[in-house]
Design a protein around this nucleic acid. Sequence first.
DNA 1: TTTAAATCGGACAAATATGTCCTAATAAAA
DNA 2: TTTTATTAGGACATATTTGTCCGATTTAAA
Lengths: 144, 144
Amino acid sequence: MFSKACEYGIRASTYIALQSLEGRRVSLKEIAEEIDSPVAFTAKILQQLSKNQIVDSLKGAAGGFEIQRSGIDRIKLSEIVYAIDGDTIYTGCGLGLKKCNANKPCPVHDKFVQIRDDLRYMLENTSLYEMTVGLEVGLTYLKR
Amino acid sequence: MFSKACEYGIRASTYIALQSLEGRRVSLKEIAEEIDSPVAFTAKILQQLSKNQIVDSLKGAAGGFEIQRSGIDRIKLSEIVYAIDGDTIYTGCGLGLKKCNANKPCPVHDKFVQIRDDLRYMLENTSLYEMTVGLEVGLTYLKR
DNA sequence: TTTAAATCGGACAAATATGTCCTAATAAAA
DNA sequence: TTTTATTAGGACATATTTGTCCGATTTAAA
Ligand code: FES
Ligand code: FES
């Protein structure tokens, strides 16, 4: 569904949001540990998320990553997915034709578009805050 | 969503089904041309589909690929996807945890499972025959 | 029986995604 | 001012996916 990079990106953003809610800024090392991802690779992804203004990064000792409270409420999963995987998930054809196109649809177009739109709706309506809710109380997990 | 191999596999199977309905056996070359796919790569995929009894292959001059009428009605997209991409689409976690697991769910589990099950239902209930219906009358396309 | 047209299957090649390493830049603390 | 802890970014390495090539095998037709 999503690339590994995107999966790590969502998990990382969610962990940063969770800690930011407690007022804690977190380091790359801690993030990678808590979401069980390769450290250096996660660094690249966080750079990308920082450039796309999804997370804030601070260099130097006592630096790290954080997300403003306003961001935690505002940022939706769709923005993270878009920053890392682009829009292929929305514009791509299920059978791999150049672009999805209702005027010259592939045989699964109608059915595929329904599912894709459900996915889109879900991503566009799930905020980082919502992602953190179950984590605090141990109902959901970012690693196993 | 699906791998390239899987996309080619579905397009190829659909084209073979379409021609088989007319009693025509088709060659690799013709298939690749009609679905706009790399010939040699398509050959590998057809081998896999043949081993999984999704298409019938006949060697030698006047050989080629075909699907029995009974198969065209019986074979669902889910079988093609399974033969090529396996079951990751059904068992995988949306955020990349080792396996999707309702007992230790990731933060998107509930929403993701809904969409995944819709996709599964769609694949399990779309037959090759259904795929060919729009093609004959120019309502749908396998290439552009 | 020979030739031609086709799939099969293994080895190879290229492209992309995933992941690592090292140095530079930055900023707080000693 | 020096040291230490951190992110930034480029170059490199590895794994996976995608794609190619070619000889072997099969079968129908000449
Ligand atoms: S054309 Fe294939 S999904 Fe729209
Ligand atoms: S655990 Fe992540 S989708 Fe089920």
